[in-house]
């Protein structure tokens, strides 16, 4: 494992922890899109089917379990926790799941490395992860005023994606036969979706003002 991959995994982990911390301590999920969180839970559930079939390393298994448990906990908190759920702004978070899930699934049926259930689910999870942040970005645009933790959450997710790209470049030059078009293209699309957010995030950071997105 290279340093980019490790740093990428750690920022990914940090993003989830920031979110859980916010929900757990402030007992609020204001500004968080339940739609995005549900999509991430679906992403992990479909991608980590190999937990049952392949063993890669203890690190790999543990991280997969952490992402599965944390994503489903976040969804549970927002939907069912008696205090947290009251802060969920249902009327603003209107993105439709199937609008993203269906095209990703159809694309996975057509473009995949192998036509098996496991492969198609894995490919589907990559396509879905690429666009799963969209409901969150739409919600941020709508509410415009973003609290620090939500801003940091999205920033850490974007950092994780950028580090994964550096990891792929590194692996391409250091490992033989390391070519994964599906992973790369969907990963690139995913990272580009953050570009706009990043721009405003850095602007607010540079000028030392509260992050606010233009309408």
């Amino acid at each position: 494992m290279n340093i980019f991959r490790l740093a990428g995994d750690m920022t990914h982990l940090a993003s989830v922890l920031v979110l859980l911390l916010k929900i757990h301590t402030i007992k609020s999920c204001a500004g968080i899109s339940l739609k995005t969180q549900e999509l991430y839970a679906l992403v992990f559930a479909t991608r980590y089917l190999d937990l049952f079939t392949d063993y890669i390393s203890l690190y790999n298994t543990l991280m997969k379990l952490i992402f599965l448990v944390s994503s489903f906990s976040i969804v549970w908190y927002i939907r069912h926790h008696k205090i947290v759920r009251r802060s969920y702004d249902k009327d603003q978070d209107t993105f439709r799941h199937y609008f993203l899930v269906l095209p990703c699934f159809l694309l996975a049926l057509v473009i995949n490395e192998k036509f098996t259930v496991k492969e198609i689910m894995w490919t589907f999870s990559l396509y879905l992860e690429a666009v799963a942040i969209l409901p969150q970005l739409v919600l941020l645009q709508r509410t415009r005023n973003i609290d620090n933790l939500t801003g940091q959450y999205v920033f850490l997710l974007g950092a994780y994606r950028s580090l994964y790209i550096l990891n792929w470049i590194y692996r391409y030059f250091t490992e033989p036969h390391y070519v994964h078009w599906i992973t790369w293209i969907s990963g690139l699309v995913q990272t580009l979706l953050y570009a706009d957010f990043f721009y405003y995030y850095f602007q607010s950071w540079k000028n030392n003002v509260k992050l606010e997105l233009p309408a």
Binding site: R5, D50, I56, S57, Y164, E175, H177, Y178
Partner: peptide, 10 residues
């Protein structure tokens, strides 16, 4: 022939 790398990423 070399098998493709395992999917060891998260």
């Amino acid at each position: 022939y070399q098998a493709p790398p395992v999917k060891d990423e998260l």
